[in-house]
Design a protein around this nucleic acid. Structure first.
Lengths: 181, 181
DNA sequence: GTCTATATACAGATAGAC
DNA sequence: GTCTATCTGTATATAGAC
């Protein structure tokens, strides 16, 4: 099992960071190369085009989501609680991959939009057995989407106006009471 | 009461449309001018810079939200139902102004982010008296955010995976049961 | 008010040295 | 593998004619 070259991962990290903090417009190959500490030519050795770089982020997202769904299935407090709690930005690799892919999607990248829709569907499939009916599943998914949306607006670093601590606990209790099977 | 010049409004409409359908990256002054049926010079007579054009969208949003909050206060089914129902994309001027401003925010426009946060706060203030507690208000706001987020991903035109018809009715009933004072 | 023409800057991508 | 140098396209913005 050969893990991916380090420079390649650094480039992806840098690209994600600029997407999240400064938006899609600022995430140029030049800026990415500079932030990753390589030259533009060096970047283009690992990713032959802007499109390849964007595909790299999407592939990384898909891998991280697979891990997350495994975690979710065996979470001690149950999948709904795990899912909502992990919907607030913890700035972990998965959060960053989602935010970065969202930026690409909102910048017009169709593959990114598709990937996000598929990710959402995978989560929905995993949660469905634990919810009462379609409306209950909608409720859980939409609250999660809402949490992510606010994080996305906040720029990924500044905390948005999302519930934290005890208020988050109360929200999860409220959603579980309404939706949990 | 002098209404704003027609050409100016056409330019704003065109700019919003490109932002929503093709993303921030495609919403250039050139593309906007073309879509609005004016030349670049003509556009620049009405909006002296890209920044002025973006401010135009944000100002329009603020006006439309004021109208919406008035409507919400006197809605027959109550503010929560009105608020959630109007959170699914109806492609009306307010929806388009929100989506367009979201694109600007996600493209890195700080004024757009601030405007959206303030809009969200105005809605929260109007809804607070009608909800039980902080968690209940969070629930209503986050479901609404979730609906908008999915519309934003869908590109504004293709319907996203959001509840419609009877499923939307069931969702509203669920949220009201959990949150309504 | 609206147009054309153009200046300036920067994006993505290529070629080829080391 | 990583670099510099450079080509080409396109964005914002200005100048000035009509």
């Amino acid at each position: 099992m050969s893990r991916p070259p380090h420079a390649r991962e650094s480039v992806l990290d840098a690209f994600e960071a600029i997407l999240i903090e400064d938006g899609e417009r600022s995430a140029t190959m030049d800026a990415t190369a500079r932030a990753a500490g390589v030259s533009k030519g060096g970047l283009l050795y690992h990713f032959g085009s802007k499109d390849a770089l964007e595909r790299g982020v999407i592939e990384r997202l898909d891998l991280l989501v697979s891990d997350d769904i495994t975690q979710m299935s065996s979470a001690p407090d149950g999948p709904i609680s795990y899912f909502l709690r992990s919907s607030i930005m913890q700035n972990d690799p998965l959060d960053r991959a989602i935010l970065a892919t969202s930026r690409l999607a909102q910048g017009g990248n169709a593959a990114a939009s598709t990937a996000l829709r598929e990710v959402r569907e995978r989560w929905g499939d995993a949660l469905r057995p634990h919810t009462r009916d379609a409306a209950s599943l909608d409720l859980v998914m939409l609250v999660s989407d809402g949490l992510y949306f606010n994080n996305a607006l906040a720029g990924g670093s500044i905390p948005g106006p999302v519930p934290r601590g005890p208020e988050m606990d109360a929200l999860i209790a409220l959603v579980e009471r309404a939706a949990k099977r």
